[in-house]
């Protein structure tokens, strides 16, 4: 589709004049262009590429919408505010807020509603299920790390500091499963946040304490089982049925 009038200024300047007959200028130009246009991956992408052993998967990871700088900063700010509120009131706000924040991040990690090139990415060699897995794990890990830091900074009891991690796993799994089945990040966020809100309110109604949802160890096993079920739903939804082709 290239014609002479489409040659850009960069290319024009790369052609100083007549060349010897045995020089293929198009070939030379492509070599020059490949070097001039070469993108240098950042340190995070390089590290991810080594860890995942796939430059494509690493590139897909660093384009995760909920890992972009603005989102990460917003997450940190919310949890920092939660830590300050916890310090001021003694109520474990970090533990109460962290699962909902993480669920939103997970729901916005992957899918047709948030990834503009999702249709194309379903036709490439790097499996969309691998992209989903890597993105979800990374978003979860980052949110868990932020939550732990904020929880530790807020000085609440160790039981509460760790008590939200399992509910967070369950809420994130629900958000991911719902977003994947409904093919909508917003539906995933709504399901995750609503379920966590219901859990908090139910805990408060049963015990009179708003922190019951993150301090009742009896919920940990059901949370793990629920997360496992949600993970199974995600795997089932993203499969290509055998015998269909």
């Amino acid at each position: 589709m290239t014609s002479d009038h489409e040659v850009g200024p960069d290319r024009a300047s790369a052609r100083p004049g007549p060349a010897p007959r045995d020089v293929d200028l198009d070939r030379v130009w492509v070599g020059v262009a490949a070097e001039v246009w070469r993108r240098r991956p950042g340190p995070v992408e390089r590290l991810a590429g080594r860890l995942l052993r796939s430059p494509g998967l690493a590139r897909a990871l660093v384009t995760t919408p909920s890992l972009l700088l603005a989102w990460v900063v917003a997450t940190a700010v919310v949890l920092l505010a939660g830590a300050l509120a916890t310090l001021g009131t003694g109520t474990p706000y970090v533990a109460l807020v962290a699962p909902a924040v993480a669920a939103a991040g997970i729901a916005y990690a992957y899918g047709p509603g948030v990834d503009p090139a999702w249709e194309l990415s379903c036709s490439v060699a790097v499996s969309d299920r691998m992209v989903l897995l890597v993105r979800a794990l990374t978003v979860f890990g980052l949110n868990a790390a932020f939550g732990l830091a904020a929880s530790a900074a807020s000085g609440v009891a160790t039981a509460v500091t760790l008590g939200w991690l399992l509910p967070m796993t369950a809420v994130c799994a629900l958000a991911l499963a719902t977003a994947t089945v409904a093919r909508s990040a917003n539906v995933g966020v709504a399901a995750g946040v609503a379920s966590w809100l219901i859990a908090i309110l139910a805990g408060q109604a049963a015990t009179g304490r708003i922190s019951a949802a993150v301090t009742t160890s009896a919920l940990w096993l059901p949370c793990l089982a629920f997360a496992g079920c949600c993970a199974a739903i995600v795997l089932y939804t993203t499969r290509i049925p055998k015998g269909s082709s």
Partner: peptide, 28 residues
């Protein structure tokens, strides 16, 4: 991005991208 997702060998990616971009007349 799509060259990487299609698992083109890393050593070939930059040249392949340049060829494809030139081929559709978007060099400039």
């Amino acid at each position: 991005y799509f060259a990487l997702l299609k698992e083109l060998p890393a050593a070939e990616v930059h040249r392949a991208v340049a060829v494809a971009v030139e081929r559709v007349g978007l060099g400039d």
